[in-house]
Amino acid sequence: MKIREIAALAKAQVYCCEEFLDGEVHSACGSDMMSDVLAFVKDQGLLITGLVNPQVVRTAEMMDMRAILFVRGKKPTPEILALAKQCEIVIMASELRMFEACGTIYESGLKGGVLQ
């Protein structure tokens, strides 16, 4: 699924790296616990989270993820955006709650993928 389609499904605002919106991701992970993302994620290209701090971007970078969707109306800080630009990770933010965001995107075809 294109990152652009995910943004549309989640009615999300795109905050940076718009040039990568046509990039494809094949699975996603939803978590507010970065420890678990680091321990359980394998090939998920999209991180859906309600946690807002720079470690979210570093975690996504470590896992080779291409996009982050902040949920529950959380907004990325300038620090987060600067780091995401460096790492070429698309940052989006949606008013949807985690459950709704995951459900909507899953229902449209993006799956959970392989776990470690």
Partner: peptide, 15 residues
């Protein structure tokens, strides 16, 4: 509250 401290660090380093 910052998303860490789940007790997965050392086991994940080993894994």
């Amino acid at each position: 509250s910052l998303g860490f401290g789940a007790g997965m660090g050392l086991p994940n380093m080993k894994a």
